[in-house]
């Protein structure tokens, strides 16, 4: 028997009951807002990336479902000529951990809001943010923080400057560390270095609340990003008046997690003292066109495995059922 094993979590009575309760509460919340469940197969036969759990089924290389959004997108693109507008999912994904403390089997509940290309997407983004705002109450989380970001704030300037892919990757890695000095180091004497460094400093400005957007005034790309800024401003004005008491809302201009996937507004849910985000999502308008469908989409995923861990280590963050 191997003595060094990956982290496949076994859930004992309390955690198993909590998982069942949370899945039920979140799926009921999503159903109440018109999201219908789809359940893509646990076994995928399409090409899969590094990090998926792969094995041979006879002569066929297959993989366990490693991401619900990608699995659902494949299913939708294959089976539906028109997109169902609201889809929900619940279950496990299997992914090789990047960090040793992460589990390989992860439980998730999430949703996708899909629209034909050209339809106005701003309301769909706000709809998802409102839905995510209701998640802490459904989970019995006493306090939570919702971060609003926008992948385009970094993506568009990098595209405008036509940086080589490796250099763009280094800039994104520096921003992921929230280190403007690393952005400067990475760009060296590249002609765009002064502009992109000033932009990084603007994105990392330590402001709070709606004023955070004013930091973009100092960016050399302020005009380029005027549309994104207006979108975020409208979202803030729509969300702040209905903010639940247990929730703080913050603007995170330097959110670059998943930048190769997200194309627009992003959402992250944190709890005070949590070391990992508890839910994450955003707009990803390039996935369906890559699969041959002219659709745009956004969604979010609640990471129940992280919540289960948090309930064990910080029970004070949760209401007792």
């Amino acid at each position: 028997m191997p003595v060094r094993t990956p982290h496949f979590p076994d859930l004992l009575f309390g955690s198993a009951a909590r998982l069942r309760r949370w899945e039920g509460a979140l799926m009921a919340l999503l159903a109440a807002h018109g999201y219908r469940e789809l359940h893509p197969s646990l076994v995928l036969r399409e090409p899969v990336p590094e990090g998926a759990l792969r094995f041979f089924d006879g002569e066929d290389l297959v993989a366990l479902r490693w991401d619900f959004t990608v699995a659902l997108a494949g299913l939708l693109a294959r089976r539906f000529p028109e997109p169902p507008d609201r889809v929900a999912y619940a279950g496990a994904v299997f992914r090789r951990p990047v960090q040793p403390w992460e589990a390989m089997e992860r439980f998730e509940v999430g949703c996708e809001r899909i629209q034909p290309e050209g339809e106005i997407s701003a309301e769909a983004d706000v709809e998802l943010a409102r839905l995510l705002m209701a998640v802490p109450e459904a989970l019995g989380l006493r306090r939570a923080i919702l971060h609003l970001g926008n992948a385009a704030l970094v993506r568009r300037p990098l595209e405008a400057e036509q940086l080589p892919p490796d250099l763009a990757k280094a800039v994104v890695a520096a921003l992921s560390r929230r280190a403007a000095h690393r952005v400067r180091e990475a760009l060296g004497d590249h002609p765009a270095a002064p502009r992109l460094t000033a932009h990084a400093e603007a994105l990392l400005a330590d402001l709070d609340g709606p004023d955070t957007l004013k930091a973009l005034d100092a960016s050399p790309y302020a005009d380029l990003l005027a549309g994104e800024r207006a979108h975020m401003d409208r979202a803030l004005h729509a969300l702040l008046p209905i903010l639940p008491e247990r929730l703080d809302l913050r603007v995170d201009l330097a959110d670059v997690a998943g930048l190769d996937f997200y194309t627009g507004p992003t959402l992250r849910l944190w709890a005070p003292g949590a070391q990992q985000e508890l839910a994450a999502g955003g707009r990803y308008d390039r996935l369906f066109p890559e699969l041959g469908r002219p659709w745009q989409a956004a969604g979010f995923c609640v990471r129940l495995s992280r919540l289960l861990d948090l309930a064990e280590t910080r029970p004070d963050l949760f209401e007792q059922p």
Binding site: R178, D206, W270, G273, A274
Partner: peptide
């Protein structure tokens, strides 16, 4: 030398860690 921080510490408890 660099001053580093846990992502969760800064993003979930900025008022305490900053």
């Amino acid at each position: 030398a660099r001053l580093i921080a846990a992502r969760g510490a800064i993003l979930s408890e900025p008022g305490r860690i900053r």
